[in-house]
Design a protein around this nucleic acid. Structure first.
Lengths: 186, 186
DNA sequence: GTCTATAGGCAGATAGAC
DNA sequence: GTCTATCTGCCTATAGAC
């Protein structure tokens, strides 16, 4: 079935968001989907091919969500809230952002996967800057937009990391307050 | 030599801050120090024993630095700057915080190592709260101190994660500005 | 596309000599 | 404390049948 490729990607994404690429084996992935590990190699010849597929899959789903948010007739405040909500939902499932997890495994990645990972963060930063620019009237920060975009993204990645080990959403909550305070001058 | 234990811990810490626990093997660690892997097992029977030793070693070094900072006759501003400097130096070496790295590998850790990791973050949070309380006169934030402490820590962990993949210290820099703005009302 | 079978390597861990 | 030697198991990856 050609739809096993989709099942493999979905299962692999879930596993990587929990245990990382190095915590995922072709055998356990195959078992999860109900096929053999050699069949996984049919779809993804090398593990790095699976890695590429996962980053691309995660990115395209993520940016699709951002497109929806950007397209809404909403305030900047509501858009940023929706952005943070995406991360909060990931944390609620005791997962990390797939790209955040792979960022921790950066030294193990192939150079093309490193590039895909950088693109994910660059494009997220660009999206944030664009929203901040599109709502000049609401933007109250004295800092420039690049700095704000970077702080939002790294805050949320760090918050996911720490919330998972302590349970709950305390760090995400703290960052939510701070981001509002910085962007809107409270 | 009893000092091989120290060499092993130092080499292992370095490797884990780059590649994580799962990227470290007894064989490569042994080779780094110039002994055999079976000799590593003499010092650390299981890999989780090495993990415990590393978290404890990293924590005690870290909190020793915090003790020095707390003991200085400095402003809150200077203390927070020194705190951030510790993280910036880690990033300058293209490493992650050891505990941040192991937080990403949380699901692979033994339960006692999970506890040690939690302690590291709890105690850091407590230290930050204590400093904020000790300098009531400088503290300008409307948020409560727990929230501020959490946001500082998760901001810096996330900044290290993202700065490493892009090179430079842009995220740490962005967080430095934001932390000042939040704590001191700029 | 999926299977069985297997190669070849590296992992953590142990036994026992020195 | 460190060594050699080895066990057992898992890993990625491939060959070839169906």
């Amino acid at each position: 079935m050609a739809q096993n490729r989709e099942k493999l990607e979905a299962a692999a994404q879930e596993m990587v968001q929990h245990k990382g690429m190095s915590g995922l084996s072709f055998r356990t992935l195959a078992a999860e989907v109900g096929i053999k590990s050699s069949s996984v190699h049919y779809h993804f010849p090398e593990k790095s091919d699976l890695g590429s597929a996962l980053i691309q899959r995660y990115s395209s789903e993520f940016f699709a969500q951002l497109d929806v948010i950007a397209g809404r007739d909403d305030t900047l405040n509501a858009k940023i809230k929706s952005f943070i909500d995406i991360f909060e939902e990931v944390g609620r499932q005791n997962k990390l952002c797939l790209c955040g997890m792979m960022a921790a495994e950066y030294e193990q990645l192939s150079s093309s996967n490193r590039q895909l990972l950088c693109d994910y963060f660059d494009n997220t930063e660009k999206w944030l800057i664009k929203q901040l620019e599109a709502h000049k009237e609401d933007y109250e920060s004295t800092s420039n937009r690049k700095v704000i975009a970077r702080m939002i993204m790294s805050s949320l990645e760090g918050a996911l990391l720490l919330d998972r080990i302590q349970g709950g959403a305390r760090h995400i909550g703290a960052q939510r307050g701070v981001i509002n305070q910085i962007v809107f001058g409270r």
